[in-house]
């Protein structure tokens, strides 16, 4: 398991190559990358600012990955989440899951993202031409958890 919270960008290809090199018995890697959209609710965004709760964030991500490991036979997981100022089109988050077969990796990757969105202490602020505002939590993110109950 690799959990990282960082201001620096990440290289998806290098992360996936490291997973392949470390596990000869995997047959699938599913990865998800979240990015900064140019607009939200119709107003243009210049960049985003991401804040987190140092200490709790890491613990929370480890706990979410462990929950996935209990549910599926997965070989390894990488979660990288960026913080700080992120311009439009920037990568925000990477979740990559390696397993023997693809079905498990697809499901576990979605599970980890769904819980990250609702439980990991990160907050986004959108900075646009007309000022800055904190992003509101979406009820659809919470209801996405229903399918894992």
């Amino acid at each position: 398991m690799k959990i990282a919270i960082q201001t620096a960008d990440f290289d998806v290809s290098a992360e996936l190559a490291a997973l392949r090199a470390a596990h000869r018995d995997i047959g699938a890697i599913v990865s998800f990358v979240g990015t900064v959209r140019e607009a939200n609710a119709g107003s243009a965004i210049l960049h985003m600012e991401l804040e987190h709760y140092p200490g709790m964030t890491e613990k929370s991500l480890v706990y979410i990955v462990q929950k996935a490991e209990k549910r599926w036979e997965i070989n390894d997981v990488v979660v990288i989440h960026r913080i700080g100022v992120l311009p439009v089109c920037a990568q925000i988050v990477l979740v990559a899951v390696a397993s023997k077969h693809r079905g498990t990796a697809f499901e576990a990757c979605e599970f980890i993202m769904d819980y990250l969105k609702t439980e990991a202490p990160f907050w986004k602020k959108e900075v646009g031409e007309h000022g800055a505002q904190w992003v509101d939590a979406r009820s659809t993110d919470l209801s996405a958890l229903d399918k894992w109950e």
Partner: peptide, 10 residues
């Protein structure tokens, strides 16, 4: 003890 709004990462 910490207080904060609902989280919005990812």
């Amino acid at each position: 003890v910490a207080f904060f709004p609902p989280v919005t990462g990812g």
